[in-house]
Design a protein around this nucleic acid. Structure first.
Lengths: 158, 158
DNA sequence: TATTGTTATACTCTATAACTATA
DNA sequence: TATAGTTATAGAGTATAACAATA
């Protein structure tokens, strides 16, 4: 099942999305980690540390949601909160040493997966493949931005 | 934000997934439709009609979940339930005429989007791009299947 | 007054387990 | 006994709105 080979390019890209999501969900089964929580950890690794406000902005979710995600991560010792040195309203969220190690491993595996996937593409095709991906992202970004501006439109749904 | 240009191929594929999800979520904002409910409608359009059991199998979710999704769709007049002609335990779920029209529109837009995205790729690159996508799907499918078999492994998470 | 985070509330997606009706 | 669907319960992601403390 979930064998979507033989559809349009769009179907194939959607199939790739689906495979990523399933793989992600299964990789963290049995741990307190979930895709949303991993996204928080990922952001923290990139930024070093962060206020919750900054996390909410980076992940584009509500402050309320970040509170809950950080609560869960803190309860499982992936992050800890410390007071902000100058702004007493804010807290600084930081990876624990355990989570830092985990994220380094995750980053290595992420890089390895990227290499593996690219290696599956015929070497002669790689440049054209990369250009194609870039072109699709650029076009898709345009479309999403355009639709976000238009107030109505996208009227496919009653 | 969400501007991930300039990462690895893997990052780019993940960015495409993210763009799809955001676009989808926004396209149905303000309607009772959600990605999970649309997936049910999509499956029904492909199959004509279906028992809930078959829907659960096709979407790979629990029977309980399908019950809730069909409840919501039925309450909003996207589908209706009718008794199965020969098996009195089962129900047949079918699109309403309104939903059938909606899905036809959606399918047209889906096709148009596919065309638009492919048109963004340089025509000389298209064959290599398509081969690349196929190769990535094949490899990714292998990896997911392999990991699903192994009982332990994937030990990146404590 | 504006901002940071939390509490309160609500919806959705999802799963497992127990139960009913039917095969 | 096995299967189709529902009820019960629970955890997770998400949002808005109201509120506290602090800028």
């Amino acid at each position: 099942m979930v064998t979507v080979m033989g559809g349009s390019v769009l179907d194939k890209l959607l199939a790739i999305s689906d495979l990523f999501q399933r793989d992600m969900a299964r990789a963290f089964a049995g741990t307190p980690l979930t895709p949303a929580r991993v996204a928080v950890l990922w952001t923290l690794q990139l930024h070093g540390c962060s206020t919750q406000q900054a996390l909410a902005g980076a992940l584009d979710v509500s402050a309320r949601n970040i509170s809950a995600l950080v609560d869960a991560l803190e309860a499982n010792d992936y992050v800890h909160r410390t007071p902000h040195p100058s702004d007493r309203r804010a807290v600084i969220v930081k990876l624990t040493p355990m989570a830092e190690e985990l994220m380094e491993t995750m980053q290595r595996e992420h890089a390895a997966l990227g290499t593996t996937l690219l290696a599956a593409v015929a070497s002669a095709d790689i440049p054209a493949f990369e250009r194609g991906i870039d072109a699709v992202i650029a076009r898709l970004t345009e479309l999403v931005a355009a639709e976000a501006d238009e107030p109505e439109k996208k009227g496919t749904t009653p």
